[in-house]
């Protein structure tokens, strides 16, 4: 009889522990957090991503941006150079935009005329430039993660990336893990 009740108590303890763990993971899965995977390197798409990120941050939502593939060109610093690149990497580096200030538009690029006109309109209408947006993002504590694998694939080097206060390097697992905790996940 006594043996039985001891067994029962230990069973209940186990179940309680399982429940506590489940509740903890549920609480973590709905964080007021935005995880965004930014893959496109077009000026308009990077702008959209940054505007959403800033708006979310203004709403006190924690923002985590994961940059990979074409979007990485937007994180290059035109005044910095990567060393020790092979032939293909050098070619990629030459053909891709040197910084966020010379990205192309996904529509109406017109050999660079489109971005010029958009930039003129943005100044006229008081829309922040990409430079300002990144500066604001840094001050607001928005985190930027660079996908190490795609950076390597595109032939970019760490030393040619912008200086940004919350810049990290990680893999897709980090994005998936943080996306799992976030109440909002976007892919651009």
């Amino acid at each position: 009889m006594e043996q039985e009740s001891i067994e029962q108590i230990s069973l209940m303890k186990k179940q309680l522990e399982e429940l506590t763990n489940k509740v903890a993971s549920l609480e973590n899965s709905r964080k007021d957090q935005l995880s965004m995977a930014i893959v496109s390197g077009d000026m308009d798409k990077i702008m959209a991503a940054m505007i959403i990120a800033l708006a979310a941050s203004a709403m006190d939502t924690q923002v985590k941006l994961f940059f990979s593939f074409w979007a990485l060109a937007a994180l290059r610093d035109e005044n910095k150079k990567g060393k020790g690149k092979d032939f293909i990497s050098k070619m990629f580096g030459m053909m891709l935009p040197k910084s966020k200030n010379n990205l192309k538009l996904s529509n109406m690029n017109m050999a660079g005329m489109g971005p010029m006109m958009i930039k003129y309109l943005m100044r006229k209408k008081g829309v922040m430039s990409l430079d300002q947006m990144f500066k604001e993002a840094g001050e607001l504590g928005i985190e930027i993660t660079i996908c190490e694998m795609s950076m390597d694939l595109m032939g970019f080097k760490k030393e040619e990336m912008i200086s940004y206060p919350n810049l990290r390097y990680a893999g897709a697992g980090t994005f998936v893990n943080e996306g799992n905790e976030s109440s909002m996940q976007l892919f651009i």
Partner: peptide, 13 residues
């Protein structure tokens, strides 16, 4: 007044 979306929201914050 000098800034467009999301400028005013950021200023308010």
């Amino acid at each position: 007044r000098g800034t467009a979306c999301p400028g005013p929201l950021l200023e308010a914050k």
